[in-house]
Amino acid sequence: MAPAGPRSGDAIFASVERVNAELFTLTYGAIVRQLLTDLEEVEEVNKQLDQMGYNIGIRLIDEFLAKSNVSRCVDFKETAETIAKVGFKMFLGVTASVTNWDADGTCCSIVLEDNPLVDFVELPDTCQGLYYCNILSGVIRGALEMVSMKAEVTWIRDVLRGDDAFELQVKLLKQVPEEYPYKDDE
């Protein structure tokens, strides 16, 4: 069998089982509302959403690698492109693009053209500090950590806050050298 190359996000999305995006959207909305009721502070909700995303990210990376045939990315640029072109498409069915690279190639923006999480959503005045989609940044952070990249992910633009697009800044903090979980002489 010839070695299979990386698959396109579209091809994977077409081949996996899918569910109605509205069930997903409304369920996410229910989660955010529960958090707002339980935690009261918008800041705490942001934190909890990020944590949930992180939990998802560290599990989701396995499925991502198994289904995409993506092998090790040569640099952070390729990593970011893969997240945007394959990752977002494969799980959420949406297209994202990478832009605003800094000079040394360790910081870029992922711009979402479409975001199924925010359908039917309008932020009330009491929730102005809320990063409604903070779960997404957590997912990216968690998934990258599993491939030995420590990254910082922050929202730059958010349509719910009146911007014209969703923009996530992904900043590579460091590449963690791989360590075996055991020592040779043990």
Partner: peptide, 24 residues
């Protein structure tokens, strides 16, 4: 109003739902 034909992957929903359960 969208036509409601958009989809996401089942895993995306399953991951999200599992977080809902675990958080609760």
């Amino acid at each position: 109003l969208s036509k409601g034909k958009q989809e996401v992957s089942l895993s995306a929903f399953a991951f999200l739902f599992s977080e809902l359960v675990q958080y609760n």
